[in-house]
Design a protein around this nucleic acid. Structure first.
Lengths: 172, 172
DNA sequence: GGGGTTCAGTTACTATATAACACGCGGCGG
DNA sequence: CCGCCGCGTGTTATATAGTAACTGAACCCC
């Protein structure tokens, strides 16, 4: 609510740090975080909620009038590959990866297991990264001889705030 | 591979049984498994793989020339509500629920937790229903005060067959 | 028989995503 | 120097997925 997207002048430190981290990460991966890609990443990160490709496109057009669907989708593909953003399949929308900011050079480089909690009521989407879930999943998969690659885990339900405030009196 | 979809004449016992089970289930739920819905359900069940709404529409047109997108989507919505089919979000496609066939009158009525394993190589999609995964997920959610409703869990990776037969020699 | 509900037909449209081709730029070998 | 190639992007067109809104038929209930 507090962000005036009209002019892309403002640049909170947090965003700047995230972009710098992304840059470093791409460097390590031998990938180019070009101007376009940085712009799209910034748009995703600025938003507090998952944004659809076309919503991003609209915002992007402010800075890049000629932008078309492929413009956005190609950037998104890149960012997904680099693990800088995730796609929320249930929403056909994209969010910044909560872990992307940490520039911990070692261990895994990207594509950490993650899960989304999506509030049915207020729409808030939260990313968590629970090892137990990943483990249970890998376990279950292994039981049928399946080798886990990338997992999409998205839970719809009620966030803490909306769960306590019971919505609008059940009608049925 | 063995099903000739050209004419909808054939009706394996398995399919017939599944449809009968679905009928019984709807009866119990006070829902009507109409002709259209049965047709769409049959199409989903016949396919060995997830089918997109428009693929279903094409097939449906053989039996119902006037069919349009809403025709299929309304039937799919119904079947989803009844728990007779699931949607695979990553594929925008629909599959029959493996548990729908069991006409166990008691306990849960539908919407059991389930997970999909999708082979990156051959595309085979398998549904499993692992309580440990569901539990781990509910647990992780509870830890942040989130009440779990419906979970989408879809794992991409390699099925047993494709995992043993290493694909086409890794390049990188 | 009026009035509700449910289901399906129909038209039109919105939203999401990709194909295919063209161009500019930088590197590299002839 | 030139042609070629890989890459990122621009551009146009199109494919795929999903809904809105209105219509009418069938059924049930009173």
């Amino acid at each position: 609510m507090t962000t005036g997207q009209g002019s892309a002048a403002e640049m909170p430190e947090e965003l700047a740090r995230a972009l710098a981290g992304a840059e470093a990460r791409c460097l390590r991966a031998g990938a180019q975080l070009t101007e376009l890609r940085r712009q799209v990443l910034a748009l995703v990160l600025e938003a507090e909620q998952p944004l659809g490709a076309y919503a991003l496109l609209d915002r992007l057009k402010a800075q890049r009038p000629g932008a078309a669907p492929p413009t956005v989708y190609r950037a998104l593909d890149f960012l997904l590959e680099q693990g800088l953003i995730h796609k929320v399949e249930r929403l056909n929308a994209f969010v910044g990866c909560v872990e992307a900011g940490y520039d911990h050079g070692g261990g895994h480089d990207h594509h950490h297991p993650h899960q989304f909690l999506i509030c049915r009521d207020c729409g808030v989407t939260v990313e968590i990264s629970d090892p137990a879930v990943a483990h249970a999943l890998a376990d279950a998969a292994a039981r049928v001889g399946f080798r886990v690659g990338n997992a999409t885990v998205e839970v719809e339900g009620f966030c803490a705030a909306c769960a306590t405030r019971p919505p609008e009196a059940a009608g049925a």
